[in-house]
């Protein structure tokens, strides 16, 4: 009991807090590092799709970070990347199988994008940059924070695209069809680029309001 509390305190204060803040905001995988864009653009035409995809990435990042970190002293340096991919792929396939068995419609809508998390830069980047250097509990937190950072951006994009593109949120009509004409562009790929671009600009503006180049 006291042990887990100790771990919790060390996670919540200092390094843990910084790790969490890094993943969610300061180094957000999408808004700052601009990783995982492919899926962020492809599956965000519906909020529900975006949420499930975010969930998948949280699951995969936490799992792969935990295992890679636990094995970090055992993994031979020369094959560490391929070992990371194998571990990531295992978690992705398990998630995909569960989706296919119990949420078939969702699985069909997400198409190949769940499987493509294997090649997503985020789990791989976290394993390589963080889990190999840090302990399991901190790595688990890092995986969670980065997954959540990705999921949050996807959720916002999904929310905006579904609302403007269909006038609905999670399938419930909120903008009446009587006065709102759904904007098809939002459902198609260009809408995703637009929303993501504005979102990144906004987050940059909040982070560094006046940082003009002075000559």
């Amino acid at each position: 009991m006291s042990n887990s509390c100790g771990a919790c305190v060390s996670l919540c204060g200092g390094k843990g807090k910084a790790t969490f803040h890094d993943g969610i905001w300061k180094n957000n995988p999408i808004a700052v590092q601009v990783l995982g864009i492919c899926s962020a653009l492809a599956v965000t035409n519906r909020l529900a799709n975006a949420l499930v995809m975010g969930l998948a990435l949280i699951f995969v990042c936490m799992g792969s970070n935990l295992i890679v970190s636990s094995l970090r002293k055992a993994i031979p340096h020369r094959i560490r990347m391929i070992a990371e991919v194998v571990i990531i792929a295992t978690f992705v396939i398990v998630f995909d199988q569960i989706l296919k068995a119990f949420y078939w419609d969702m699985s069909k809508q997400l198409g190949p994008y769940v499987g493509l998390i294997i090649t997503n830069c985020i789990p791989m980047g976290r394993a390589e940059a963080f889990a190999l250097q840090n302990g399991p509990s901190l790595s688990l937190l890092d995986g969670f924070a980065n997954g959540l950072g990705y999921a949050a951006v996807l959720a916002v994009i999904g929310f905006i695209r579904e609302l403007l593109g269909t006038g609905a949120i999670l399938g419930h009509q909120v903008l009446s069809a009587e006065w709102y004409t759904p904007n098809q562009v939002m459902i198609l790929a260009p809408g995703a680029f637009l929303v993501l671009g504005f979102l990144i600009a906004l987050s940059q503006a909040i982070k560094a309001p006046v940082q003009e180049v002075k000559k």
Partner: peptide, 15 residues
């Protein structure tokens, strides 16, 4: 290295 790769592969396959 070979043994590690084999063990990791086998474990993941079983999982």
């Amino acid at each position: 290295t070979l043994v590690f790769a084999a063990v990791l592969g086998t474990v993941c396959a079983i999982v």
